[in-house]
Write a protein that binds this DNA or RNA. Structure first.
Lengths: 219, 219
DNA sequence: TTATTATTCAAACGCTTGTTTCAAACCATA
DNA sequence: TATGGTTTGAAACAAGCGTTTGAATAATAA
C-alpha cells in the first residue's frame, strides 16, 4: 500500500497526488483518508493539518486536476477557430471522452466530474460553476449552430438544444459510469478502451440525430 | 420518520416496503438499516432476523420490485407483435424511462437497476442476469432489425449494435443519474418530469442516429 | 393448559470512519 | 547555540454503521 516514492517531497503535494488517484478511483465517499495518507507516506493527521478536513483536500484536488485537464485536454483540442460545427462537435466528444476515460493526472478531473454528476457531494456547486457549466455552454453553442442552420430560431429551440446536449453527454458518460455493466455485456470484439472508436460512433450517431431533429416532423 | 400505517401487518412485508423506498432513494450503500426499520416500525434486529443481513433484504427488494415492474411496465408495453422496429424502439425507450423516472413501487426496480449500473454492489451479477441482460438482448434485437434493413450483416455489425444500445441506454440513464446537474443547468422551460417529451426526443434522436449509421461512410 | 417454537425488543458489541490531542522532532532565525 | 514557530506522529476520541445477544413476549401445537 505504501508508496513513498513520489517526486514531490513536501507532504502537502504528496497528499494531493495520492488523493487524486484515490478519489478518481473510489469516489469521494468511498475514499478513506487512511488509504490516502498511507499512499502518500504521511500520518493520518496530515490531511486535517494541511487541508482542514477531507473535503478541503477534495477541493484542492479538484482545483489541481482542473488545471492539468484543461492544459492537456482543452474542449476544442486546439482546433482552428473557423472549423465547421461538425468538426467542433467531433472534437468536443473526443476531448470529453479522453477526459473521463483517459489515464493519469489529466484524466482525474473528468472522472471526478463524472462522479459528481452521478453521485454529487457538497462540492457539486463548485464543480458546476468551474467546469460543468462552461463545458455545457460551449456544447450548447455548437449545437445551436448545428440546429438552426438556415432555419430561424424558435422559442422551443432552447429545450431542443438542452435535450441534445444531454443526449451527447449521456452517451459519453455511459462509457465511464456504466463500465462495469459494459464489461459484462460487451461482445468480445468490442474494446472498451478504444476511445477513438467510441468517439467516432457517438459523433456519427449524434450528428445524424441532430440532422434528423432539424428535418423535424414525424416519428 | 415513523410510518406504521402500512397495509401489510407482517413485519417482513413492511420491511420490504420501507426498504424499497429507502434503497431507491438513497442507494444500497447510503441506506441504513436503522432508517428502514424506523420507517417500517420495526426493531433494528428485524432485518437480520428475517433476511439474514442487509444484503439479503436488498435481494428480496430486488425480486419483489422486479415483479411489480415487469407487470406494470413490460418492455414492449403491450405492443402488438407485428409492430415496426421503429414503433418497438419508441415503446422500449418510453417503457425504460417510465421504469427509472416513474414514481411508486413499479419504478423502484428501474431506479435500483440504474444505481447498480452506476455504482454496482455485490448483487450486480444477479441484476445483470435477471434484468439487465434480458433488456439488453431485446433492445439489441430491435437494433439489429433497424440496422441491417436490406443490408447484409457484416462481422463488425455486433459492435455497432452494442454501441447503439449503449447510446440509447446512456441517453435514458442520464435523465436519472444526472438529475441533480440537469436541475442546475436546465432552461426554465424544460420540465425534467415530462417523460413523454424526453422519450420523444430520445426516440427521434436515436432513430435518426441509427439511420445515419446505416447510411454509413464519412463523418 | 402446557410445552414448544417464533418473533420482538432494548441494549450492547465490534468495526470503520473522520477528526483531535499533544508531545516529540524539525527548522529557520537571532 | 538558544529560541519560537512549523510540522510530524502515535494514540485516542466520538459518531455511525451492521450485527449480535439474550431475555421477554406472542403464537402455535400437544
Amino acid at each position: 500500500m505504501e508508496d513513498i516514492s513520489k517526486k514531490t517531497d513536501d507532504t502537502k503535494g504528496r497528499l494531493i497526488e495520492a488523493a487524486g488517484e484515490v478519489f478518481a478511483h473510489h469516489g469521494f465517499r468511498s475514499a478513506t483518508v487512511r488509504e490516502i495518507c498511507s499512499r502518500a507516506g504521511a500520518n493520518v493527521a496530515a490531511v486535517n493539518y494541511h487541508f482542514r478536513d477531507k473535503e478541503g483536500l477534495y477541493v484542492a484536488v479538484l482545483e489541481h486536476s482542473l488545471q492539468s485537464a484543461t492544459r492537456k485536454y482543452p474542449p476544442d483540442l486546439g482546433l482552428r477557430d473557423q472549423a465547421t460545427p461538425e468538426e467542433k462537435l467531433r472534437t468536443f466528444i473526443h476531448s470529453f471522452l479522453l477526459r473521463i476515460l483517459g489515464e493519469g493526472v489529466p484524466a482525474w478531473h473528468g472522472k471526478l466530474m463524472a462522479r459528481e454528476i452521478a453521485d454529487p457531494t457538497d462540492a457539486l456547486g463548485r464543480v458546476v460553476q468551474s467546469s460543468i457549466r462552461p463545458l455545457h455552454m460551449y456544447l450548447a453553442s455548437i449545437l445551436s449552430d448545428l440546429l438552426k442552420e438556415g432555419k430561424p430560431a424558435e422559442g422551443e429551440e432552447r429545450d431542443v438544444i438542452f435535450l441534445c446536449a444531454m443526449s451527447i453527454v449521456g452517451q459519453c458518460l455511459q462509457h465511464f459510469t456504466g463500465r462495469r455493466v459494459i464489461a459484462a455485456l460487451r461482445p468480445k470484439s468490442f474494446n472498451p478502451a478504444d476511445i477513438e472508436r467510441i468517439a467516432d460512433h457517438i459523433t456519427r450517431f449524434s450528428l445524424a440525430g441532430i440532422r434528423g431533429l432539424r428535418a423535424g416532423g414525424s416519428l
